[in-house]
């Protein structure tokens, strides 16, 4: 705990009792260091956007937050990531449960090649969150409703999810993540494979989800970051260059590099 409070002072000071924190996080892919002393706080029930040029480590950082990097060979991590003040890299932490608490939505919509219903019900089923078929039905319905998809698919829940359009598939993936009742949802460029209309729908959805979930979103689109997020962190070459209120980052960046990036001078 002492470590957390001490190094918290080196991060930006305004945040009190964050949902998640990263402290002096370093990550190596074999010999190559991809993250350098990352310090970041994620505020509860807010959308935090991670922006930065390609290869700057923002997706890598996102994947540290639910330990998805564990599945990659040759990754070594030091430093600390906490969820509700508990180190998620602690040996006592069960990764499976952790990932249930911290859901993830990927860049490319990746529904299971099963029915729409089975996609959403999969999470609750494996975690034993329900006791009856009715309960499961209810979770599926609420999750689809929350993802703004229910109206479009309620008559074809048993049809294969792969038959949906790209935007619908992505919202299905969000519904699937929501069905496990996570506390945090990580989104890795969720709109990069979608057309503008589908993107608008997903952004609207993110804004609604904010009232129930803590959201971290990686995005390449600065407009998107500006539209959906309350806080923004700018990554560059594996380091957090600047983090703060989205308004402040976009209107009054303190760092020259941030200013250069958001005005489109490099990246």
């Amino acid at each position: 705990m002492a470590v957390v409070t001490q190094s918290a002072m080196t991060a930006e000071p305004s945040v009190t009792s964050p949902k998640m924190t990263a402290r002096d996080l370093n990550l190596f892919y074999g010999e190559n260091q991809a993250l350098f002393d990352v310090n970041l706080d994620i505020v509860e029930r807010q959308v935090t956007a991670l922006i930065g040029p390609s290869g700057c480590g923002k997706s890598t950082f996102l994947r540290c937050m639910n330990r998805m990097n564990d599945t990659i060979d040759g990754v070594t991590i030091n430093g600390q990531v906490t969820l509700d003040n508990r180190d998620i890299y602690d040996k006592a932490i069960d990764v499976v449960q952790l990932r249930a608490r911290i859901g993830m939505v990927f860049q490319k919509p990746n529904p299971f090649p099963k029915s729409i219903y089975d996609n959403v019900s999969y999470g609750p089923r494996i975690h034993g969150l329900v006791n009856s078929r009715d309960e499961l039905d209810e979770i599926v319905m609420t999750s689809l409703e929350r993802a703004g998809l229910l109206k479009e698919v309620k008559d074809r829940l048993q049809e294969p999810a792969t038959g949906l359009s790209g935007g619908q598939q992505q919202r299905l993936c969000i519904a699937r993540a929501v069905a496990v009742s996570p506390e945090v949802i990580l989104m890795d460029e969720p709109c990069s494979a979608l057309d503008p209309i589908a993107t608008a729908k997903v952004e609207e959805l993110i804004d609604e989800l904010r009232s129930n979930y803590t959201i971290v979103i990686v995005t390449h689109s600065m407009q998107q970051a500006a539209r959906v997020s309350q806080r923004t962190a700018f990554f560059h070459l594996g380091k957090v260059v600047e983090v703060g209120e989205t308004d402040q980052i976009f209107t009054n960046p303190k760092d020259e590099r941030t200013k250069g990036y958001i005005t489109g001078r490099f990246g």
Binding site: N66, M68, T71, V96, Q97, L98, R99, A100, G103, M104, V105, F106, K108, N110, P111, F112, P113, Y122, G123, I126, H127, C173, R176, A177, V180
Partner: peptide
């Protein structure tokens, strides 16, 4: 089998064995 399916399952909190046997 596309890696995205494995990631989807793992990201939902399926254990590695569940990921393999279910998907």
């Amino acid at each position: 089998v596309p890696p995205s399916i494995r990631q989807a399952a793992l990201g939902l909190g399926a254990s590695p064995v569940q990921t393999v046997t279910h998907h």
